[in-house]
């Protein structure tokens, strides 16, 4: 852990800005970035890292969704329907998380990242030239599969504190036929509620620490505002590649840490 208090505070703020930008850009809420850094660099126990991350996801989601909803990029009816499955999953996940083994959580996290990342890369290489932009009209397909996927995303969110975005975005984009930008904007809209359902539970356990959450959340909000502006100006195929790259990178980090002897705290 960095020695000086100011350094500590500033570090968390910068982490927040980065996570918020990425979260708003890709619909992943930033938990993917916050949890590994808090556990690997700051040595925070994983349950507290998750508690902090859940609060930050709410900040990213609220900050970014306000913008995306205003620009009608989020499909809020799709979001509200998928929320049915995802909130139930989120509560269930948060309830069993405290009983689970930390290394098992980390490996589960990594497996999930690799799967989503691999699918996205394949898709981005196949269809990069003809990727539909957000304004294209689309028909939503395979609702039942989408609902099941959202339920799983909810459980994973409650377990791992990532808001479920890394699962919801691929589900909407790959399975339900939603354009990538609409998928990320809708995910941003939903993950606030998914994260809130688990956050209340982590909070009551004392796993939301002001020391960590306050500076990180401020940074995240600033980052989310930045991310929304960048997202609306960036071609979808670049966002898809960035999304996949981030997934693989953190999968490797989590596995490496778990194999090296687990998490501090």
């Amino acid at each position: 852990m960095p020695n000086s208090a100011t350094q500590f505070f500033a570090g968390l703020g910068v982490l927040g800005v980065f996570a918020g930008t990425m979260g708003a850009l890709l619909g992943i809420g930033g938990g993917l970035i916050i949890i590994p850094i808090l556990t690997l660099v700051y040595g925070v126990p994983i349950h507290q890292a998750i508690g902090t991350s859940l609060c930050c996801i709410i900040a990213t989601s609220s900050g970014a969704a306000a913008n995306y909803v205003e620009h009608r990029l989020s499909n809020i009816r799709l979001g509200m329907t998928l929320e049915l499955a995802t909130t139930v999953g989120a509560v269930a996940g948060a309830l069993v998380a405290a009983a689970l083994h930390r290394e098992a959580l980390a490996i589960l996290f990594a497996v999930m990242l690799c799967y989503a990342g691999g699918t996205m890369v394949r898709r981005s290489l196949k269809a990069s030239a003809t990727e539909p932009e957000a304004t294209a009209s689309y028909t939503i397909r395979r609702w039942p599969l989408g609902m099941i996927g959202s339920g799983v995303a909810g459980v994973v969110s409650g377990l791992l504190g990532i808001g479920g975005g890394p699962i919801k975005v691929p589900i909407m984009y790959l399975v339900m036929g939603v354009p990538f930008k609409v998928a990320t904007a809708t995910s941003n809209f939903m993950i606030g509620v998914t994260a809130a359902a688990s956050a209340f539970i982590y909070y009551s356990r004392g796993d939301v620490q002001l020391l960590l959450t306050a500076p990180t959340a401020i940074g995240v909000y600033v980052g989310a505002s930045l991310g929304t502006h960048i997202m609306r100006r960036t071609p979808s195929r670049w966002l898809i590649r960035l999304f996949s790259a981030i997934m693989f990178y953190f999968a490797i980090m989590m596995v490496w840490k778990a194999l090296r002897g687990g998490f501090a705290g």
């Binding site: 208090a5 100011t6 500590f8 209340f200 909070y203 004392g206 620490q209 020391l211």
Partner: peptide, 12 residues
């Protein structure tokens, strides 16, 4: 700026 304070065992 360090707030060393822990909440536990209470709901919101």
């Amino acid at each position: 700026l360090v707030l060393d304070y822990q909440i536990s065992g209470m709901n919101l």
